[in-house]
Design a protein around this nucleic acid. Sequence first.
DNA 1: GCTAGAATATAGCATATGCTATATCAAGCA
DNA 2: TGCTTGATATAGCATATGCTATATTCTAGC
Lengths: 160, 160
Amino acid sequence: MGRGAADKANAAEAAEAGGQLADVESQAESFRRARRARRSELVDDYVELIADLIADGGEARQVDIAARLGVAQPTVAKMLKRLTEEGLVTQRPYRGVFLTAEGQDLADRSRRRHHIVESFLLAVGVDPEHARLDTEGIEHHVSDATLAVFARFVKEAGKP
Amino acid sequence: MGRGAADKANAAEAAEAGGQLADVESQAESFRRARRARRSELVDDYVELIADLIADGGEARQVDIAARLGVAQPTVAKMLKRLTEEGLVTQRPYRGVFLTAEGQDLADRSRRRHHIVESFLLAVGVDPEHARLDTEGIEHHVSDATLAVFARFVKEAGKP
DNA sequence: GCTAGAATATAGCATATGCTATATCAAGCA
DNA sequence: TGCTTGATATAGCATATGCTATATTCTAGC
Ligand SMILES: [Mn+2]
Ligand SMILES: [Mn+2]
Ligand SMILES: [Mn+2]
Ligand SMILES: [Mn+2]
């Protein structure tokens, strides 16, 4: 233990008044989930962007990926190596990047989620610029349950 | 340069059909903002949690912070050192953690934002458990503009 | 006052993500 | 056919965030 009499009095006082905090384990689980999402969001952004570049221009090059992510080319090279190890993309040295079936699947799901979140923000009244900016981060922390609610809201808003 | 005739043809073909992608700089800015938010979200979560612990129990102890964040105690000790350097908290060795005026201000704003986001998710129809879980991550990527829209939605939903 | 036990502090390590600088390679073109 | 040049690969480094193991310190209670 270890606290002075004044601290103890304060603690006791507040403890009587308090108890507003959520359950410790529930709260810890929220933070763990947020940290887990943070670890996978880079992967999601990469495969989604690669799919978009291929769809739009027929190829995904490191320089273009780097420019669109706002990072340096070696940063992209390192991440592509990781994505290759994880079986999401294939690389031919000095050639372009291609998505595996698994990578394409993840890209499709990421793109869909991204689109729903952005459409939802627009539907609820957020201006297009902030909707676009905020979605890039928000999308990675939206559970399937919440995504379903967003999708329904967008659909309802479409036909009033 | 460097690509085969087939690739070149594909690229040209897709380029004609394509052009759906957003502006490179705009997109890069979205990703930069998301990365910036990721860097500050830990700080926000810490000061908000410290404020809650003090409000609820009269003190904020490393062990309790660690338990609620779901991390080990040395992880908390290291972060508190950083928060102290940044002028957000004060520490007395082997004693509790206290918020500076600046830290308390950040905590208040973080708590307010957290509350608005969670209330909004509930108002739009997300179940309480997923609202609580998702908010922990989403809150850090909501701009002031979007937050204002959320707050207005909650207010409107309150009086139908 | 001593001491046991809880809390905090510190050391050392691992992983993820970013950077700059530089070497290597491949295509297109002279 | 080579050469130029743009793209990719690699090396080396920095920072942030986590961990385990262990030393240190404080306070409560005897
Ligand atoms: Mn996305
Ligand atoms: Mn994103
Ligand atoms: Mn919060
Ligand atoms: Mn949070």
